[in-house]
Amino acid sequence: MRVIEIMGGHGPAEALTPAERPEPTPGPGQVRIHVQAAGVNRPDIVQREGRYPPPPDASDLLGLEIAGEIDAIGDGVTRWAVGDRVCALLGGGGYAEYAVVDARHALPIPENLDFIQAAALPETAFTVFANVFEGGGLKAGETLLIHGATSGIGVMAIQMAKAAGARVIATSRGAAKAEAARALGADISLDATTGDLLEAVKAEGGADVVLDMVGAAYAELNLNALKPGGRWVVIATLTGALAQIDLMRVMLKRVILTGSTLRSRPADEKARLAAAVEQTVWPWVASGQVRAKVEAIFPLEQAAAAHQRLEAGEHIGNIVLTL
């Protein structure tokens, strides 16, 4: 089968090289998916650079989300049949013509979505649900502050928060991205390159939940922007992981600081999360309230160009590889 390997084990985008490998065989409880499209995400870049090794039981190939058709089924799988259209969350192995996945980590593709749209859903939908709704406890009527609002995660968070009846304050870099976030449904969309972000957020009443992909540079802003009893959820640290914060203010405001990663969670926990996403988020997807915004599409063999596009930081939404 066709795959993309990292020449030398790690390196720049140019290290991504087309190669051939044997087709995998599904084991007990697994299905094999004939991949039609695969999402490209920032963790793929970090792994390619050698800073995010795959879990011990995962493929060394990049790719955390795919969409395609099931073409083989392992022992003990009862939900799926050959030919079913599914998208799935992977620990790795998505940049390939075939991928094997725990059958519990696959979800049916709604009829109104094609493979390209579906491939951009699992990583973002699972991440937002686990962090904003479970970790952050976002409720209808509350305000969610999203940094990096035009990333794939940000786009999904805007739509899911609005579908749940929450208010959204979005921050992004540049007027064009701020306008894009507004068009996606953000109630307030702020250009992080102009003005005082903290004062602008406070003028809107502050936030009940912060979804933070920036890290250290925004730590002070986040603590000050949160309402009493607010929840600060960290899912990435693009400006650094070490920050100094005033713990007395954390105590006085009763702030909850939390965060998580998705890839390293046990298989049973991912299965639980998949079931929760299917119950809560999939109806929003089926109704059209929530959609992945696919900004760029590249053939598998051009994975290097896809990574360069993502690294440039000018994209709005998701980048997808097709096979």
Results as ranks from 00 to 15, higher is better:
Met248Cys: 02
Arg263Thr: 04
Ala186Phe: 04
Tyr218Met: 14
Arg182His: 12
Asp208Leu: 04
Pro283Thr: 14
Arg173Glu: 00
Lys202Arg: 15
Asp268Phe: 01
Arg182Gln: 13
Ala161Pro: 05
Ala274Arg: 00
Pro228Lys: 09
Asn224Thr: 03
Gly148Trp: 11
Trp284Ser: 13
Ile256Lys: 13
Thr239Glu: 13
Leu184Cys: 01
Asp208Gly: 02
Val250Glu: 03
Gly206Thr: 07
Thr280Ser: 04
Lys162Gly: 11
Ile153Arg: 01
Lys162Gln: 14
Arg272Ala: 03
Val233Ile: 15
Arg272Ser: 03
Leu226Ser: 06
Ala178Ile: 02
Ser189Trp: 06
Glu204Arg: 11
Ala149Glu: 02
Ala157Trp: 07
Asp208Cys: 06
Leu184Phe: 09
Gly148Thr: 09
Arg254His: 13
Asp268Ile: 01
Glu220Ala: 15
Glu204Trp: 13
Thr171Lys: 01
Arg167Asp: 00
Thr258Lys: 08
Met156Cys: 14
Val209Asn: 12
Gly174Arg: 08
Val155Ala: 15
Thr150Leu: 06
Ala225Asp: 03
Gly185Phe: 10
Ala243Phe: 05
Val233Gly: 10
Asp191Arg: 05
Gly195Tyr: 14
Met213Asn: 05
Thr258Asp: 13
Ala166Met: 05
Ala267Val: 11
Ala186Glu: 06
Ala149Gly: 11
Glu269Tyr: 05
Val233Lys: 08
Gly215Val: 14
Asp196Asn: 15
Asp268Gln: 06
Asn222Arg: 07
Gln244Lys: 13
Leu242Arg: 13
Gly154Trp: 07
Lys270Pro: 00
Asp191Val: 12
Ser151Gly: 15
Leu273Cys: 00
Lys177Thr: 03
Val201Arg: 04
Asp268Arg: 08
Val255Pro: 03
Val250Thr: 12
Ala200Cys: 05
Ala166Pro: 04
Gly152Ile: 05
Leu247Lys: 03
Arg272Val: 00
Arg182Trp: 02
Val250Asn: 02
Ala276Cys: 00
Ser189Ile: 12
Ala207Met: 10
Arg272His: 05
Ile256Glu: 13
Ala207Cys: 09
Ala170Cys: 02
Gly185Pro: 11
Ala164Phe: 07
His147Leu: 10
Val250Pro: 01
Thr150Cys: 12
Thr258Asn: 12
Val255Lys: 05
Ser264Arg: 07
Gly259Ile: 09
Ala275Gly: 01
Asp191Ser: 13
Ser172Ala: 15
Gly215Ile: 15
Val168Cys: 03
Ile169Ala: 04
Gly185Glu: 13
Asp246Gln: 08
Val277Ser: 00
Glu278Ile: 00
Thr150His: 09
Pro228Cys: 08
Tyr218Asp: 10
Asp268Tyr: 00
Trp284Cys: 14
Gly174Pro: 09
Ala236Lys: 04
Asp187His: 06
Ala163Arg: 14
Leu198Phe: 12
Gly174Ala: 01
Leu211Arg: 05
Ile188His: 08
Leu223Asp: 01
Thr261Met: 10
Ala243Ile: 11
Lys253Leu: 05
Ala157Pro: 03
Val234Trp: 12
Leu221Cys: 02
Leu257Pro: 01
Val210Phe: 11
Met160Tyr: 07
Glu269Gln: 10
Ile245Val: 15
Leu247Met: 15
Met213Lys: 04
